[in-house]
Lab assay of single mutants.
Amino acid sequence: VDYIVEYDYDAQHDDELTIRKGDIIKNVKKLEEEGWLEGELNGKRGMFPDNFVKEIK
């Protein structure tokens, strides 16, 4: 499942992704941690907030 970024987010920890509006995040999975998703961007896998992105259908 792929998501498109709607709002910029700067990573706060090493396991998070810095994302920018218009980025496409690939292979996204829901995490047990409420409010977070995990996906791949530019060869890096990491977490990001689910309210900054929208699923591409």
Rank of each mutant, 00 (worst) to 15 (best):
N51W: 07
D14G: 13
E38G: 05
D15P: 08
N42Y: 15
Q12G: 08
R20N: 05
L31F: 09
I25L: 12
I4Y: 09
E6P: 03
I56T: 04
K44N: 09
W36T: 03
D2Y: 15
T18W: 02
L41Y: 12
K21R: 11
V28D: 00
D8E: 06
R45L: 06
Y7H: 13
W36Y: 09
R20H: 09
H13G: 08
R20A: 06
E33A: 12
L17S: 01
G22W: 06
P49H: 15
L17E: 00
Y7A: 14
Y7T: 12
K26R: 14
Y9V: 01
V5M: 02
Q12Y: 06
L17Q: 01
P49L: 10
K29T: 11
G39W: 00
E6L: 15
I24L: 06
W36A: 02
D50Q: 14
L41M: 08
K21F: 06
I25M: 03
D14W: 14
G43E: 06
V28N: 02
T18F: 05
R20K: 08
E6K: 12
I19P: 01
M47K: 08
L17G: 00
L37K: 04
D23W: 12
R20E: 03
H13A: 10
D23I: 04
E32N: 11
E16P: 00
E55I: 11
K57L: 15
E34Q: 12
V53K: 02
W36M: 08
I56S: 04
Q12P: 03
E33G: 13
D2I: 13
I56Y: 04
K26F: 15
K54P: 02
I25Q: 00
D10V: 14
E16L: 02
V53G: 09
I24Q: 04
N42R: 13
D14E: 13
D50R: 15
M47F: 08
D15E: 08
N42A: 12
D14S: 14
K30Q: 09
D15N: 10
V1G: 13
R45I: 07
I4N: 04
G43S: 09
L17A: 01
L17R: 01
G46E: 00
E38P: 00
I56L: 08
I24H: 04
E16Q: 11
Q12M: 11
L31N: 10
F48S: 01
L31D: 05
R45N: 05
E6W: 09
E32V: 14
E33V: 13
V1D: 06
G22V: 01
D10S: 12
G35H: 11
